[in-house]
């Protein structure tokens, strides 16, 4: 905090829509003066309290712990009460477009219908499953290491920022999405929980589960609490193998195929990997394979590149690898 309070002017283009009265959404412009210690929620409040009291948004705690006020600013997932306006000016300059987390789910202005989000939350049994002693005289013992191993997945505030930023969710409404998968991690890596296998079987279906992550890191970027959902999804991948719940399918064979291929060549045998992963399904790749072949893009077995010192790689795989399929 400097000795004097600094202010700046920002120019806002704000998404407006009321599904009761508007046929189409529109944008309204506002000019707002902000000071150095204000956050984006203060900007929303100023719009409502100083310019237009019909403007609607969700908010409650105003310090990043209740998860109500997720919005998008210049397409960036933002928990309004946790983002300093001056930081946003540094990122984007003083012109900002303010939109709801998801335009297609909007009810009114910044308020969206989160039904699908909560449905997916519910789908992963988001609670500890164990018989509860209703009158215990001791606690479960849990080592500091086991507590830290929750990797802050327990501080997810269900704001939905990651979910609505996820491109896989955008194009596939069945995908569980990063928030509910991070929640899955939260319980699956808690030593006290007893439903790990059950949850793994829920989240490792093709089409809706962990294998539909496109690995874009939008969720990590969007999370205001540092939960890093993609990291948790990765650990769920490894857990399905560790727990022997990985079904043999294109996704699991694909992951395992890397090890096999690296062991043989150091490099990846791209053609073989596709063939191994897909099994008979490889046939559907023939047209594109043909295109690639014509353009000299397919390494043939006889000229498959190999890493120098391949024996080192083989040795390391042998000594360092513990995963099984």
């Amino acid at each position: 905090m400097a000795d004097a309070i600094e202010t700046k002017k920002i120019y806002l283009k704000v998404f407006r829509f009321n599904h009761e009265t508007d046929y189409l959404p529109y944008y309204k412009n506002y000019e707002v003066v902000v000071s150095q210690d204000e956050v984006m929620l203060d900007v929303l409040n100023k719009i409502k309290w100083e310019f237009d009291s019909t403007f609607s948004y969700r908010r409650s705690c105003r310090h990043g712990i209740c998860g109500s006020c997720g919005i998008k600013v210049n397409n960036r997932a933002t928990l309004a009460c946790k983002e300093r306006v001056f930081d946003m000016i540094e990122l984007f300059g003083n012109e900002m477009t303010i939109e709801p987390q998801s335009r297609k789910r909007v009810i009114k202005d910044m308020v969206i219908d989160k039904k699908d989000f909560w449905d997916k939350y519910n789908a992963v049994k988001p609670y500890m499953i164990t018989a509860v002693d209703e009158h215990p005289d001791s606690e479960n013992y849990m080592s500091p290491h086991d507590y830290e191993n929750l990797k802050e997945a327990d501080i997810c505030v269900q704001c939905g920022n990651c979910y609505y930023a996820c491109p896989s969710v955008e194009v596939n409404e069945d995908y569980l999405g990063p928030a509910s998968l991070a929640k899955t991690y939260r319980f699956n890596f808690d030593t006290r929980d007893e439903a790990k296998i059950d949850r793994l079987d829920t989240v490792n279906d093709l089409g809706s589960g962990i294998w539909d992550c496109v690995k874009c890191y939008e969720c990590a970027e969007a999370c205001p609490k540092g939960v890093n959902p993609i990291e948790k999804i990765t650990y769920l991948h490894t857990q399905t193998f560790q727990e022997g719940r990985a079904k043999s399918n294109v996704a699991t064979r694909h992951a395992v195929g890397f090890k096999t291929s690296i062991n043989m060549h150091g490099f990846l045998d791209e053609g073989m990997l596709v063939a191994y992963s897909e099994g008979i399904g490889v046939l559907k790749h023939l047209p594109e394979a043909f295109k690639m072949f014509r353009k000299g893009k397919i390494a043939m077995p006889w000229n498959m590149p190999k890493s120098k010192n391949l024996d080192e790689i083989k040795k390391l795989i042998k000594s360092s690898s513990s995963a099984k399929f």
Partner: peptide, 10 residues
């Protein structure tokens, strides 16, 4: 990123 899904340490 796929080997990482199977065997992080490796």
């Amino acid at each position: 990123s796929h080997l990482q899904d199977f065997d992080e340490f490796l």
